[in-house]
Write a protein that binds this DNA or RNA. Sequence first.
DNA 1: CCCGTGATGAGACTGCGTATCAGTTATGCT
DNA 2: AGCATAACTGATACGCAGTCTCATCACGGG
Lengths: 159, 159
Amino acid sequence: MADRTPIVTALDLAGYRLTEPRRSLAALIADQKGHFTAAELVSAARARHLGVGRATVFRTLEVLEEIGAVERLDLPSGEHAYVGCEPAHHHHVVCSDCGQTREIDDAGLRTVVREISRRTGYRVDTHRLELFGLCPVCQAADRAATRTPPESGTDRSTQ
Amino acid sequence: MADRTPIVTALDLAGYRLTEPRRSLAALIADQKGHFTAAELVSAARARHLGVGRATVFRTLEVLEEIGAVERLDLPSGEHAYVGCEPAHHHHVVCSDCGQTREIDDAGLRTVVREISRRTGYRVDTHRLELFGLCPVCQAADRAATRTPPESGTDRSTQ
DNA sequence: CCCGTGATGAGACTGCGTATCAGTTATGCT
DNA sequence: AGCATAACTGATACGCAGTCTCATCACGGG
């Protein structure tokens, strides 16, 4: 709990105080495998008897999002979740089974956005792309469970 | 209020009952220019003294989303909003000033998704792309107000 | 070591969305 | 047309996410 996780460093660089609650939360977040909700953080903190209040969790998440150490996702269910991530990369593929996420870079999106801008006349300032599906591991598990050979393994995207 | 809006027809086709509250809400939604929240619908209904309960608004929106007559957006603020739309088209450009939305089709996204799928090994089942910016009208208004000549008019997208 | 200020935690508060439930109404059938 | 019934409705209660307040605390610059 005393290690300087990248998140702590980022907080420091951004000029925020390095308080005990923030260190605790940084450690908790670093432990998360996939995405996590504010509520999950709250109960994780409580489970480990770190004395971190609910309000502090929300405030810290807000700060972390601001400095780009964490990104907010809107799950298809409507829930708000977060993922720890590098600043700069801005899209995520989310496994709808295990919650594991992977960051992805542009991948040609830039062109798409420009094209849309051209067609509609809108000046596009920000965009959000979120992809949901099965990570390789869960695909394998799925296949093993249903005993059905893979159909394609790539794109089954809705539209 | 007795006209059969497209939404009403869609409900009928999907086998749902054509009740008075649903007709009222369909009419209200047809009147909306941009996106709207559940809360806005509730108060709009109340303002017009349609006797439509809060619960019914939420239930109806759920049904409408299911049949694709309405789509749910997650605004950057975290709010949940809805837009009336044709089924099949699945992305929206949202004006962050006036809320006006435009539907857009694929525009090359399909390729991007396939590429991401290939790179990450994820099987992508669904995705969500939302774009926020200024519609042409608000751009003009903005320009007129600030007396600043347009810088480019196209892409200012973050990442 | 001391002080100022930013940060904290407890708890009140708001407002979205859902569940319950008794009463109502659209619709298919005769 | 009249009826039965299952879908639907509104009122109300409830749970829960997120925000706000405020008195207290502790980080970090001096």
